[in-house]
Design a protein around this nucleic acid. Structure first.
Lengths: 260, 260
DNA sequence: CGCATGTTTGATATAAGTCAATATATGTGG
DNA sequence: CCACATATATTGACTTATATCAAACATGCG
């Protein structure tokens, strides 16, 4: 299978969700709908602990009973929104970003199917940043108050949520190290290898994939300007480490890339 | 009260803990001892949810029944150590750091009394980085497995732990923005104002305090070289925003510092 | 198919890094 | 308790990685 479609909205997982109705320009309640069950979901291995009993899974299905479609460029939530739920990406992809009062903004992460969104609201009850769809996407809605209640009953679920949050803390501290200590070249190499690893874990090609974000968004994530991102892609291409054709990336020499 | 002693080991909170026995050079089991109760602890407002019943507090006292002393420069834990417990700083201060295989290291945070340590182990069961005491310090040990069990019984405690982890996620994303988008001058200003705010919340002077970390550690936290940190301190001094005499800091014009 | 949006590349500017010398703390053993 | 050794901090001169500005080029979406 060709992994260039990894994040495309015609991906099998996206197709499994009901077709998104065309949205009128007028703002209204975001479209939600009943979802297929967790127990039947292809992404379950990424969202949920493996050791749940059939009985636990049934409870879980009663909790996560709706999905939401978000069109490319639209926000799943914005900074300051009241925190109600966390989300699991079911299809598509997102960026999360924080903004400083002076308008300076920074991308804190990119999320692909099976990954969580919305943890930034747990601390204060308000989301700390925006989550923007990079393409037409679908998320599962997990109401946090009910999840908390269920965690008091289902020990593996409780443990899994702690682990998920703990892993996010570790991911962020790695990103701080990247931003604090690496050169532009190393940051871009690390970024590509990280994406590659995540695609591979989901059964897509580790070598070739399609970026859904712009050079500017990558730069904003890696703490550099879009021109620098572009120059590093060109440099890796000259050195035969990566073949970059616009948004299509083929990693030619992952070992050399890791040594950069 | 003069806040220059905010982190000094003769601080009242430190004195409340039993005196640390001198350690022989030989490595041995870290010294732990029974602690005074949470219910009587001056730092409780920072470690624990306010709405606990007397009964809940009693349970909590049975959970957090030991402290550990860590001498200046020693590690509370190191990367790769099995994760057993989280910790609350009772007296003193720490830095947490992550190291890349090539030896490059980065400071991910500084912790003062009432703040948590060890959350980086929850995700994988191993600590992701080191926690090093910046001065002779004391921590409360909170065995995580038992904490988890207690969270299934005491709802406010469960909620508090989620909030604590959520707040750490938000703190880290702010630090990513700092590292990704701010100038050296803005980073140092933000660092000083952040410390000031935390001291103030603990009843110490927001205007004058004592740094327990070196310029190099500050630089490693803020993603710049120690010389740059020093130059920024000198610059703020020339501009009458801050008076910096070695490790003693007096914030002269906090509003101007925030506008930098 | 056309225009807005995104990308690449080059020339130049600049913030921060590096190297080096000096100054000032801090801690230790006599 | 002082003197020395070591660690930490400051400052200056120079270098460099990355930002900035600008122009040409490609892409893809409506």
């Amino acid at each position: 299978m060709h992994a260039a479609t990894a994040l495309a909205s015609d991906h099998p997982i996206a197709r499994a969700a009901t077709v998104v109705p065309i949205q009128p320009a007028v703002r209204r309640e975001p479209p939600t709908q009943r979802s297929p069950r967790c127990s039947a979901c292809a992404m379950r291995a990424f969202c949920m602990p493996p050791e749940l009993s059939a009985d636990d899974l049934k409870k879980l299905d009663s909790l996560i009973c709706s999905t939401r479609s978000v069109r490319r460029g639209d926000a799943l939530y914005r900074a300051g929104d009241a925190f109600q739920s966390i989300y699991a990406v079911r299809a598509g992809s997102f960026k999360t970003m924080v903004m400083h009062r002076d308008g300076r903004e920074h991308v804190t992460g990119f999320q692909i199917p099976g990954e969580a969104l919305g943890l930034d609201g747990i601390g204060t009850g308000q989301h700390n940043g925006d989550a923007i769809a990079l393409e037409d996407s679908v998320v599962c809605i997990i109401p946090f108050a009910q999840l908390e209640a269920m965690c008091r009953e289902i020990k593996p679920l409780q443990h899994y949520i702690y682990q998920m949050m703990g892993s996010e803390i570790v991911r962020e501290s790695r990103q701080m190290m990247l931003l604090g200590t690496m050169t532009a070249e190393q940051r871009v190499a690390t970024f590509l290898l990280g994406l590659s690893r995540r695609f591979k874990a989901r059964g897509f090609s580790a070598a070739e994939f399609h970026l859904r974000m712009t050079r500017e968004e990558i730069g904003c994530y890696l703490g550099m300007k879009l021109e620098t991102v572009s120059r590093m892609f060109s440099k890796f291409q000259r050195e035969r480490l990566v073949h970059a054709n616009g948004k299509t990336i083929r990693i030619v020499d992952p070992d050399a890339l890791a040594r950069v």
